[in-house]
Design a protein around this nucleic acid. Structure first.
Lengths: 128, 128
DNA sequence: CCGTATCCCTGGCGATACTG
DNA sequence: CAGTATCGCCAGGGATACGG
């Protein structure tokens, strides 16, 4: 804590744009939650994932999983049985992203109270 | 890398909901970019911030800064001069969040190529 | 069971114009 | 300079229905 940190420097503005695009794609609530759930539980089927990712709609879950698969974050395995069984698990790449985001979760969990307090303070300073 | 990591466990589902809300609020492209810019450059005025946060509209910058101020991530200092001069800098809390997100930037910068490759592969597997 | 397809509508966001 | 206010668009995402 309070240790300095440095952001990666991109000399090439095109690369920087790509990095920003990746950030925009990946820094999304549902992506983070799916990442967390898959990290905690390992391989999961679609329906189980839908339960564990509290509040997600089927559409958003499908969409999120497709994007993550496309970006090489998850592997989708179709078991040719009836009824269909499809399982999702993280790739190594997905796992490393999960590690990175884990720090953000920890930060959030550690600071919920300070944030709530800051909000109360801000709201009372400015007309309720 | 490939070292295991653990997400914070929240026994209380209400706390968990709060954490998720904070994640949803904070895991946003512009918040991440403002965090990065303020970390790199220290205290900045509004107009300079607008230049450095490539592509942001004035509206989104104002909105993002207000939310961040409300959450206790930035301090807004109004210098009573003409023309007006308003400066923004990170709080300690904002700085620790910046640290956490720094890992995600590093991840993105380090893996742009793998992601681009994964996308090409995915797109060619499924009808272009 | 695991999706895709369609409808529909809210709200996020840019553009523009105006104030202290 | 540093905002607020207002309008208008269209994409994100829920709900529903249907297909393999």
């Amino acid at each position: 804590m309070a240790v300095s940190h440095e952001y990666p420097e991109n000399l090439d503005p095109r690369v920087e744009a790509l990095v920003t695009e990746v950030i925009g794609r990946v820094a999304d609530k549902w992506t983070m939650i799916v990442l967390e759930v898959l990290t905690e539980h390992g391989e999961l089927r679609f329906s189980r994932l839908a339960q564990l990712a509290e509040g997600i709609s089927q559409k958003m879950l499908t969409q999120t999983l497709r994007q993550m698969e496309r970006d090489g974050l998850v592997i989708r395995t179709i078991h040719p049985v009836i009824p269909p069984k499809v399982e999702y698990r993280l790739t190594d790449l997905g796992f490393t992203l999960s590690e990175a985001f884990c720090g953000v979760w920890a930060w959030a969990a550690h600071n919920v109270d300070r944030i709530a307090e800051a909000r109360r303070s801000f709201d009372s300073r400015n007309g309720n």
